[in-house]
Amino acid sequence: METYHGSDLQRKFSEFQRQAQHEPVEITCHGRCEFVLMSAEHYDWQKAASQRAHKTADASPVVIDAIEKAEMDAASC
Rank of each mutant, 00 (worst) to 15 (best):
V62T: 10
S7L: 10
A40F: 09
D44E: 07
M1Q: 04
M72L: 14
I64V: 15
E41Q: 15
Q10R: 15
E68K: 15
K47G: 00
S7V: 10
M38V: 06
F13S: 05
I67N: 02
H22N: 09
E68I: 12
D58Q: 12
A53R: 15
L37P: 05
Q19P: 02
D65R: 15
Y4S: 01
A75Q: 10
E41R: 15
S7W: 06
Q19Y: 02
K47D: 02
K12P: 01
E68G: 04
H54M: 14
S7R: 15
R11A: 11
D44L: 13
A75F: 08
E71M: 09
G6S: 12
L9A: 13
Q17A: 11
H42A: 07
R32F: 01
A75E: 03
V36I: 15
C33L: 14
E26F: 10
A57S: 08
I27L: 07
P24L: 05
S50D: 04
D65G: 10
M72V: 12
K55E: 06
E71V: 13
R32L: 04
K12T: 04
A59I: 02
Q51I: 06
F16G: 01
C29N: 06
K47Y: 08
V25D: 00
A75N: 06
L37N: 03
E68L: 13
S39I: 09
V25W: 00
R32H: 08
Q51N: 09
S7Y: 06
V62E: 11
C77N: 07
Q21W: 03
T3F: 04
H54A: 14
A40H: 11
M38H: 05
M1G: 05
V25Y: 01
K69E: 02
A57G: 06
E2L: 13
R32P: 00
I67M: 11
C33I: 14
H42C: 03
A75V: 09
V63Q: 10
F16W: 13
V36H: 00
A20I: 10
Q21P: 02
Q10M: 09
E23Y: 04
S39G: 11
E26M: 12
E71T: 05
S60H: 09
E26G: 03
V62L: 12
A59C: 12
E71L: 13
C77Y: 02
S76F: 07
S14C: 06
R18L: 12
G31S: 01
S14G: 03
E15A: 14
E23G: 06
Q19W: 05
A66H: 09
F13H: 10
E41T: 15
K12Y: 13
E41C: 12
S60R: 14
A74L: 10
M72N: 10
P24I: 11
V62C: 02
S50T: 08
S50C: 06
A49E: 07
A48P: 01
S14N: 09
F16K: 07
Q46K: 13
Q51W: 08
C33S: 08
Y4Q: 03
D73N: 14
Q46W: 05
Q17Y: 10
F16Q: 01
R52F: 02
E71C: 07
Q19V: 11
V62I: 10
Q17D: 02
E71H: 07
E2Y: 07
V36Q: 00
A59H: 09
E34N: 07
Q51K: 13
Y43H: 14
A48M: 05
D58Y: 05
C33D: 00
H30Q: 08
E23L: 07
D8A: 04
A66D: 07
M72T: 13
E15R: 15
T3M: 08
K69C: 03
D44Y: 05
D58L: 12
H22D: 08
